[in-house]
């Protein structure tokens, strides 16, 4: 009941953001090029162009065009991607989305599993050697030029090992096994499809190996973000009075930290995990390019180089929606973690 109100209010707050993003993409499509291009392909005869202009309302005044653009978006008409054999943007997004999400999820899991304990370790050993090492490790993550890191990883774990004739990680793509060619995608997530719908463990391992390098590369940045946040919020929480109270009860330091402090310290950390989703997608643009990962990021870069307006807009909108959704989820998790804002 109250929870519904809470969600509703968050949704309402998200509306202006979504509209703002839509407006901005519309605006950008005007200053970058001519939006008519979204509906024209090489086979379109020049004589047909005026008809297309009319059909899509480009002869109307600007504000009418704006509303047409918005209503098009709502109806699922996101234009045609000229750089991807003129297929509708929505179709391509659906096709490539799982690859990117699979990569981001793996990176995220990496980051959460490693980042939170490292942050706690760092906080509980503040200003000791272990803290210094952890901080350098974490800060190197946010300071790492991800494209360079990816190249170096690829060089060492793929080229060098391959040249030496040793077992090595795959250098790119999502899979090598030829069996994938006849693979029928169900969810689009290779890990899930291969394991649950095919029950083929070699396929699963193959997909996992392909994920390892790009996943770690992308995850390292997020590990760093989470570790830092965890460290500073943990430090803050450890100074709180309720920690003294917990200690005065005779609880062991472990219980004090993992039961009493952790839950409070998680509250700000969850926020950055939500926000980190945004940086993951940005990171995916570069990582996918280097590892030749058939996902949205690589598609977006290509689209930008070929001035494929519909694709750029589509990618931008999608990322914005993901971001808004992630924030919403964060708010809900907040409610679970912190009783003070539950139903707030």
């Amino acid at each position: 009941m109250k929870l519904r109100d809470f969600i509703l209010r968050r949704l309402i707050l998200a509306i202006p953001v979504v509209f703002g993003v839509m407006t901005m993409t519309w605006f950008l499509s005007y200053i970058i090029g001519n939006p008519v291009a979204m509906y024209i392909n090489t086979n379109t005869p020049a004589s047909a162009i005026p008809a297309i202009r009319r059909a899509h309302g480009f002869d109307e005044p600007l504000y009418v065009q704006y509303f047409l653009y918005l209503s098009g978006l709502f109806q699922g008409d996101w234009g045609i991607s000229t750089s991807t054999s003129f297929r509708p943007v929505t179709e391509i997004i659906l096709l490539k989305f799982p690859a990117t999400i699979e990569l981001s999820m793996i990176a995220m899991i990496f980051a959460i599993v490693l980042g939170i304990p490292l942050g706690i370790l760092s906080a509980t050993h503040k200003d000791q050697k272990i803290d210094h090492i952890m901080r350098i490790f974490a800060l190197a993550g946010v300071s790492m030029p991800i494209f360079w890191f990816a190249l170096m990883l690829k060089h060492v774990l793929y080229f060098q090992l391959a040249i030496a004739g040793l077992p090595h990680l795959p250098g790119g793509e999502r899979y090598t096994l030829i069996r994938y060619l006849s693979f029928k995608y169900t969810t689009g997530f290779l890990l899930i499809d291969s394991l649950f719908f095919y029950g083929d463990f070699t396929l699963f391992v193959d997909a996992l190996l392909h994920l390892a390098m790009p996943g770690f590369c992308l995850g390292y940045l997020t590990i760093a973000i989470i570790t830092r946040m965890m460290r500073s919020s943990m430090l803050e929480v450890l100074r709180e009075d309720y920690i003294t109270l917990a200690r005065s009860k005779g609880l062991t330091e472990r219980v004090v930290i993992y039961r009493h402090a952790l839950r409070n310290a998680m509250i700000p950390t969850v926020t950055v995990i939500g926000l980190a989703f945004g940086s993951l997608i940005t990171g995916a643009v570069l990582t996918e390019t280097i590892f030749n990962w058939p996902g949205l990021g690589k598609w977006a870069v290509r689209a930008i180089f070929s001035s494929d307006l519909a694709a750029i807009n589509g990618f931008t909108l999608l990322v914005a929606f993901i971001f808004v959704t992630a924030n919403l989820v964060v708010d809900l998790i907040y409610g679970v973690l912190d009783p003070r804002i539950r139903f707030g």
Binding site: D241, Y242, L245, G250, H260, D338, P339
Partner: peptide, 23 residues
């Protein structure tokens, strides 16, 4: 640890900040 809270306990000054807010 067996003394704290069991043999000797303490009540602190500020009831606003001492209980853990999330439990």
């Amino acid at each position: 640890l067996h003394v704290r809270g069991k043999r000797i306990s303490i009540v602190f000054q500020d009831p606003a900040t001492f209980p853990n807010p999330v439990f």
